[in-house]
Amino acid sequence: MKQIAFILALAAAGFGTQQVLPWWTLPLVAILVAAVAGVRPGAAFWGGLLAGALLWGGMAWWLHQSGEKLLIPRIGQMLGGLSVHILTLVTALLGGLLCAAGALTGSLGRRLSR
């Protein structure tokens, strides 16, 4: 339950801050949320990965769906023939890794102060 709450909290915090802050603040947000939530390192990493993937992948998917669906196939073709699904997965993975690395760092950092 705590794990799910952490994932949702991180995704929500990421979504909120990314509206105004540059993309590279996402790991910082993950550090903070993981440190405050006090999740264990393993849970932080996998939870962060999922939260980041949900955030970037979900956002990407939603943006693709709300447009005319013409651009992403062209971008995929430009990047060597990637499909829309693969491109969404790559984006999800990048967001996931940024959050996973940040969350792990936050979790390990909090353990230092105990």
Partner: peptide
Amino acid sequence: AVGRFFSPFTGFWQNAAQR
């Protein structure tokens, strides 16, 4: 930068939704 280009908050995904 890959991060900026792929971030759905700043990069090409934003253009996908522009009408």
